[in-house]
Design a protein around this nucleic acid. Structure first.
Ligand SMILES: [Mn+2]
Ligand SMILES: [Mn+2]
Ligand SMILES: [Mn+2]
Ligand SMILES: [Mn+2]
Lengths: 156, 156
DNA sequence: AGATAATTTTAGCACAAGCTATATTTTGTA
DNA sequence: TACAAAATATAGCTTGTGCTAAAATTATCT
């Protein structure tokens, strides 16, 4: 038994602070939203990249995805299996990857959002290199209402 | 062997598009930055939360962290072990959690950044509920330069 | 066509982050 | 002080995302 000694009887000791705080439940919901954003994030980056590669190179190969993502080709191939299972892409053994209709739809939304976030950061005065790096992470946590606010700022 | 048929001989077929694109290497570096942000993200949320709980409740208990994070107490306890290993916190069996100096420093930086991101979104016109949810994810991908730009916008 | 190069697959590993169920310990109260 | 409730720890599982090494397949070039 380690010595306790600190913090004397804090049963009803919660809340002595003044500033009104969000409810515990609301805080939990925000963290849950962030976790679900993360669960979707790789699918979003992959479909956007696949769509880019098809447009630029005529097809999306694992080796090219790996180069742009900074991971090994093995990682790409395994992830593609999951994306297939979830209905975002199709592919045959030893062949390149294609988007399903659902995948193409996601790619279109995700690219538009990504471009908007980048334009927004640039207009805000963030240097291009930082803006591009930050946008890659930020994009996945932008709700429709935040996206709308960014659009107003960029266009207005 | 599945029928290929599509995309005829694309060896040197790369780049027919017009718009200048970032280099493959720069794209990879952005994705790598995002992945390292994610690796740090849980440590950031935990130290901020631990600091909050100590201020509000006098101590940081796993059960309260679990409620605010929306995960089970088991998950919290296991994560705390990792944070301990990485030098952010200390704790004894069956006792609450404390921040190391390094942990307190991180908490201070992270809270200031989180608050700035939230204020920024609010000033941009994002409804409070969305701003709070989005900020929870966005905060971890904000570079110092983007933070500075947000500060200028909020204060200016 | 055959050799070689490039690409993809397979096998096997590691770690982070989540979970449920159950045991143990601490804490509050009768 | 003992009992009950609350909190924490332990055991064991799943999934996602990364890796290296080696085998299999496809593509290119002479
Ligand atoms: Mn993107
Ligand atoms: Mn991204
Ligand atoms: Mn957060
Ligand atoms: Mn994130």
């Amino acid at each position: 038994m380690p010595p306790a000694s600190k913090a004397k009887s804090k049963k009803t000791k919660k809340k002595a602070a003044t500033a009104a705080r969000r409810s515990v439940e609301a805080t939990a919901r925000s963290h849950e939203r962030t976790r679900s954003d993360h669960a979707r994030e790789i699918a979003e980056d992959y479909v956007e990249l696949i769509d880019d590669l098809i447009a630029e190179c005529g097809e999306a190969r694992a080796v090219d995805m790996a180069k742009r993502l900074g991971v090994t080709q093995v990682t790409v191939t395994k992830t593609i299996e999951r994306l297939k299972k979830d209905g975002w892409v199709t592919s045959e053994p030893y062949r390149s990857v294609f988007l399903t209709d659902k995948g193409k739809e996601l790619a279109d939304y995700v690219r538009a959002r990504h471009e908007m976030v980048l334009e927004f950061l640039l207009k805000l005065g963030v240097p291009r290199a930082d803006a591009e790096a930050d946008a890659e992470g930020i994009e996945h946590h932008i709700s429709p209402r935040t996206l709308a606010a960014m659009k107003r700022y960029v266009e207005g």
